[in-house]
Write a protein that binds this DNA or RNA. Sequence first.
DNA 1: ACGTTAGCGTGATGTACATCAATTAATTTT
DNA 2: AAAATTAATTGATGTACATCACGCTAACGT
Lengths: 192, 192
Amino acid sequence: MYSVLKNYINSRIQISETDLNLISEYFLPIKVKKKQFLLREGEICKHLWFVSKGCLRMFKEDRKGHEHILLFAFEEYWVGDRESVVSDKPSDYHVEAIEDSELLQISKEKLNDLYQQIPSFREMHIALQQRSFNKLQERMQKTLSFSAEEKYADIMNHQPEILHRVPLSMVASYLGISRETLSRIRANQLKR
Amino acid sequence: MYSVLKNYINSRIQISETDLNLISEYFLPIKVKKKQFLLREGEICKHLWFVSKGCLRMFKEDRKGHEHILLFAFEEYWVGDRESVVSDKPSDYHVEAIEDSELLQISKEKLNDLYQQIPSFREMHIALQQRSFNKLQERMQKTLSFSAEEKYADIMNHQPEILHRVPLSMVASYLGISRETLSRIRANQLKR
DNA sequence: ACGTTAGCGTGATGTACATCAATTAATTTT
DNA sequence: AAAATTAATTGATGTACATCACGCTAACGT
């Protein structure tokens, strides 16, 4: 269960075997079942999670009861509401497993300890944060400018994993279109 | 011109007068006229800019020639394509002055130097990055779930400055709606 | 002071997409 | 393996919003 994390870190920073083991000790392995929630809107998010197996989603529910997915987290992804973790604010989002999953959990306190102990681990997280921002900005731009069809084509090209692992209704929610529209777009694509 | 930057930093981190002056020396003051571009899509972004006076926009142009604004930068904002700066990639975005503006410019190299010299300055930037991400995530969520009318109401409540300083056509582009729709929404609001 | 351009508003029309409703297919449960 | 739930498809209809077209006003440049 830790090996996914170790590989992840190893491929990103220069680090010794001992340090890798030290890092691992900071994380608590947990298992969650499909449909289990790790965080609900209004709760303070106490942990970050690293996905070593499975898949989660982070989403917001609007007042009409519609869900809007902000993130799918597969293996080697981090999930959690960083803002809530950092500043003890109630979160706006839900985090839920969409497959039976294995996670490595770390609290704010331990994370800060770890940053102290292994500065390069912190650097890694800072770089990750930077990349996440860029990705999100790109998604923002595409959300603003793409038609439903273009959104689907784009996710096929750039995040096919989502298409293969997640129910289409959730893909639709991620793209900001209705599941019926997505269904029709897919039907049209086949005809070509 | 530097005083805006100094105030900005001072209100965010604990820092000496000497260090503030040292930091200032890393920045080159520049003036830009309204409609002047600091960055065009395809160019590598060589600098970050701190806005000490005026207002800029960062936007993407889609293939139909429509513009999609990702960021308005007023006084005390940072602009620039961080991804392009960091990794020397051609930028996807344009950066343009919407008002005659005064900026403090810093190159990647100088910025890295500065990070070394004044670690707390770097910490400040890291925290900023974190906040930007959270804001963007919130915007993403609103873009996905709000109607045109709700988007307008939201910007009135949370970013009235945008409404007062930038042309409505740009507000529309920022919200991801047409300028006509925005105009009609505003007309309706008056009737209540 | 003039023509020119930028900004905003408003009506008429079009359409991409949502919503509603019913059916079928796939998964999960027992 | 049947029953029950959940997910995906398909058609009919509705609507929020875009697009097109035009006029008005204010600001800008020469």
